[in-house]
Computed example of a mutant assay.
Amino acid sequence: MEQSQATVTIPTAGQGLTDITGKVSGWLQETGVRDGLLTLFCRHTSASLTIQENADPDVQRDLETFFSRLVAEDPALYRHTAEGPDDMPAHIRAALTQTQLSIPVQSGRLLLGTWQGIYLFEHRRAPHRRQVALHLFGR
């Protein structure tokens, strides 16, 4: 059994979903591991990871709209406001989603479904450079 680790940096354009499937798949190919389990971990408290449909961009827009309605950016609702009106809502959105994903690897490929992609979900309004740790265990 082998292990490989890396950290990838993902630039975001602000709130929304950034498809990182290609970047993750590219790294997987470089490792040479054929079968195993890949774990991804978002190293931030105001961003998260998700596996979502990658065919219809309306899915992504609907998710973004839903989260903006679910967790309002209203400073009157929160104690933690020192980092701006979008910071505490971003922490709540990250708490409601995932910061870690596990994806099986078979024959050197991610075992994602036909319409699935891996996304970094940026919850802050400003662009950021986010780090995602990758850990692959397999043969």
Rank of each mutant, 00 (worst) to 15 (best):
Q3D: 09
Q5T: 14
Q5D: 13
A6G: 00
T7Y: 04
V8T: 01
P11Q: 13
T12K: 06
G14I: 15
G14F: 08
G16T: 12
G16R: 10
L17C: 13
L17D: 11
T18A: 15
T21I: 12
V24L: 09
L28Q: 07
T31K: 11
G32F: 13
V33G: 04
R34G: 09
L37W: 05
L38F: 10
T39G: 08
C42V: 11
R43A: 12
H44S: 11
T45W: 07
L49T: 08
T50H: 02
T50Y: 03
T50W: 01
I51M: 09
N54C: 11
D56Y: 05
D58C: 02
D58H: 05
V59A: 05
E64Y: 01
F66S: 03
F67R: 05
F67V: 09
S68V: 02
L70E: 00
L70K: 08
L70N: 01
L70W: 04
L70V: 01
V71R: 03
V71P: 07
A72E: 11
E73W: 00
D74G: 02
P75L: 06
R79S: 11
A82C: 03
G84H: 08
G84N: 07
D86N: 04
D87A: 08
A90R: 12
A90H: 12
I92V: 15
A95L: 10
A95I: 05
L101H: 08
S102D: 03
S102H: 13
I103K: 02
P104R: 04
S107Y: 08
S107T: 02
R109F: 06
L110G: 14
L110Y: 09
L111D: 02
L111M: 15
L111I: 03
W115P: 00
W115C: 10
G117P: 10
I118F: 10
I118E: 09
L120V: 15
H123F: 10
R124H: 06
R125V: 01
A126H: 15
V132S: 04
V132W: 04
L136F: 07
L136W: 03
G138A: 02
R139I: 01
